[in-house]
Amino acid sequence: MSAHDEHHGPGHIISFRYTLGTFLALMVLTVVTVGVAQFDLGSLDMPVALLVAGAKASLVCLFFMHLRWDRPINTLVLVGSIFFVVLFLIITMFDTGQNVDLKDDGDSPDVVTTLESQSLPVVD
């Protein structure tokens, strides 16, 4: 951080070692993404894929975007923004997921069951 503050010009420069290391890590994680996709993990499919993607995004932010050497407030801004996006997506998807039965065609028995389970009136 202090090095960054004193540096006027092109900004913080990271060594080639870091750049190469990050690149290789991203390549490995890409192979992992493709590899994992070959197996059916059931309900774990999505979390695993998101975990690997999240790790890759973190590497890009930390090293390629220099967040590791930047002021902590910038990390806070990024993490805060991601928190709210994730919050919005999780809650909304959870809710639409619960309602999915209601969007089937009208006379599906699922609709009746769902409505009754929620103590809602069933209209013919």
């Binding site: 709210f84 919050l87 809650i91 959870f94 809710d95 619960q98 309602n99 209601l102 929620q118």
Partner: peptide, 18 residues
Amino acid sequence: SFLVWGHHMFTSGQSPLM
């Protein structure tokens, strides 16, 4: 303020848990 938006939707068919 970011955590309460669903209270506008209590009668909209939002799931009971939400």
